[in-house]
Computed example of a mutant assay.
Amino acid sequence: MSRPAETLRRVREEVNRLHAELLRWGLVAWTSGNVSARVPDADLMVIKPSGLGYADLTPDTMVVTDLHGTVVEGEHAPSSDTASHAYVYRAMPHVNGIVHTHSPYATAWAARNEAVPCAITAMADEFGGEIPLGPFALIGGDEIGRGIVATLSGHRSPAVIMRGHGVFTIGADAQAAVKAAVMCEDVARTVHLARVHGPLQPLPEHHVDALYERYQNVYGQHDDPQGARP
């Protein structure tokens, strides 16, 4: 098997595996939602097929397209969000994974046309501030992708809530984008529950900056024993 074929197989397997994570975390229903990943060293991406149930997904059902959404490999039509994913990959070279969900609490904020304010430390850690609200756009072309890029360019958040629609997240890889989608729903739920009981108090900006810096650069495990961090 050639190296490009091996790479495609690996990315298809990863994208298929990550769709199961959307189900596991309760972020999708029926056939909604999708994960895509950029193929390393190629102007290609792998994305979920349109309208297939999650139980029917396999690595072989994943669709390979170029970065303009043209199918290169696969027996199924790609997701209706393909053109928007492709636009994001073209416009944001650092993005290698994209996720879309209609997770209930985050989408409730989208239905109210509201950003999620940064009122808890978990939001500061992961998103570096509020989860912003993007513009309304119809499905099918690249308009959603344009809105994602316009909203997230220069923003620390890897998630955007698209007005009247749902959540899109980006990441350095597809797994990071899935994590952002999981965390987006988690904090959207918490902040919603807090608001039910009274006015929210957003965190001061200097605390948000400090929390974000620590989480992104100190928190977790690190390979270098000289730079071991708590």
Score class of each variant (00 low, 15 high):
152 L>Q: 11
153 S>T: 15
152 L>M: 11
141 G>K: 01
136 F>C: 02
172 A>M: 09
128 G>A: 03
136 F>M: 11
184 C>P: 03
159 A>H: 14
188 A>S: 15
142 D>V: 00
184 C>L: 03
132 P>D: 14
177 A>I: 05
130 E>P: 03
184 C>G: 05
165 H>K: 02
132 P>Q: 09
129 G>Y: 10
148 I>C: 13
136 F>G: 05
188 A>M: 01
181 A>T: 03
166 G>L: 01
183 M>R: 00
190 T>I: 10
130 E>C: 06
128 G>L: 11
154 G>A: 14
168 F>K: 00
160 V>P: 11
161 I>S: 08
189 R>H: 03
128 G>M: 06
176 A>K: 10
178 V>R: 07
150 A>N: 13
133 L>H: 01
174 A>K: 01
134 G>A: 11
146 R>D: 07
141 G>Q: 00
162 M>D: 01
165 H>Q: 08
145 G>P: 10
161 I>V: 13
140 G>T: 09
177 A>E: 08
146 R>H: 15
175 Q>I: 09
161 I>F: 05
156 R>C: 08
157 S>D: 14
178 V>N: 13
174 A>T: 05
173 D>P: 02
187 V>I: 11
158 P>G: 07
147 G>F: 12
140 G>M: 05
148 I>G: 09
129 G>Q: 13
156 R>S: 11
185 E>T: 00
